[in-house]
Amino acid sequence: MELHIQTRRVNLDEATRELVERRFMFALDQFDGFVMNVDVILEDVNGPRGGVDKHCRVLASLRGGKYVKIEDQDADLISVVNRAADRLSQVVARELDRKRDKKGAHSSGSFAEEQQPE
């Protein structure tokens, strides 16, 4: 999985960048092979004026061509990153379950049809 972090009007020191990387890698570690690419965009919407303006946008590409988009906003950069990583993990888990259910429904449905007596 490739992880790309971009910033807009946010000064991201090396320690914070590593924390963001670790947080997203930890959140998605269990989906290795299903999540292909993750783009994280961190933005300070209001700049130095403050407020609830730290914005995190995440776009993850999944195997099979599907994309997941998460957006969140908070006054604290780390809080918004943690919440976005948690939400992304939940959405990816749900997508993976749907994919598994779809495969299971097709195979069990055709098996049941073949086993019925004539």
Score class of each variant (00 low, 15 high):
117 P>D: 12
92 V>H: 04
69 K>R: 03
95 E>D: 11
18 E>D: 14
79 S>E: 09
83 R>A: 07
44 D>C: 05
115 Q>R: 12
106 H>M: 03
60 A>K: 01
95 E>G: 01
44 D>P: 06
15 A>C: 04
102 K>C: 05
55 H>N: 14
87 R>D: 09
46 N>M: 09
43 E>Y: 05
108 S>M: 09
46 N>K: 12
75 A>E: 09
57 R>E: 15
32 D>M: 05
88 L>D: 06
24 F>C: 07
95 E>R: 06
33 G>K: 03
100 R>G: 00
14 E>N: 12
26 F>W: 02
71 E>T: 05
118 E>K: 12
2 E>C: 04
85 A>N: 10
102 K>A: 14
39 D>L: 09
89 S>E: 03
78 I>R: 11
112 A>M: 13
46 N>Q: 11
112 A>D: 03
33 G>E: 07
45 V>A: 13
80 V>A: 06
88 L>Q: 02
72 D>L: 01
110 S>I: 13
1 M>W: 12
20 V>F: 12
70 I>A: 07
21 E>S: 15
41 I>P: 00
118 E>Q: 12
97 D>M: 10
96 L>R: 08
52 V>I: 15
18 E>Y: 04
22 R>K: 15
51 G>F: 02
99 K>Y: 05
53 D>F: 02
1 M>E: 04
52 V>E: 15
105 A>D: 13
90 Q>E: 13
18 E>H: 11
27 A>D: 08
32 D>Q: 15
23 R>K: 15
55 H>P: 01
90 Q>A: 10
46 N>E: 09
55 H>L: 15
25 M>H: 08
60 A>P: 11
89 S>L: 02
36 M>P: 00
25 M>E: 14
25 M>R: 15
102 K>R: 13
48 P>H: 05
11 N>Q: 09
10 V>W: 04
106 H>F: 15
20 V>W: 07
117 P>A: 09
19 L>Q: 11
43 E>T: 12
42 L>M: 06
10 V>Q: 04
2 E>G: 14
61 S>G: 00
29 D>Q: 13
28 L>I: 08
19 L>K: 10
33 G>I: 12
36 M>N: 10
67 Y>Q: 11
81 V>N: 02
38 V>E: 11
4 H>E: 08
96 L>N: 06
117 P>H: 06
68 V>Y: 02
9 R>M: 10
50 G>K: 07
76 D>R: 06
76 D>N: 13
16 T>G: 00
32 D>A: 14
79 S>Y: 00
23 R>Q: 12
39 D>A: 04
82 N>D: 10
52 V>M: 13
86 D>V: 04
23 R>M: 08
2 E>W: 01
10 V>Y: 04
4 H>D: 01
35 V>N: 04
76 D>A: 09
58 V>Y: 02
28 L>R: 03
15 A>E: 12
49 R>L: 15
111 F>T: 04
14 E>I: 01
3 L>P: 03
104 G>Q: 11
90 Q>R: 10
78 I>D: 07
54 K>F: 02
82 N>R: 02
103 K>N: 07
104 G>C: 04
14 E>F: 00
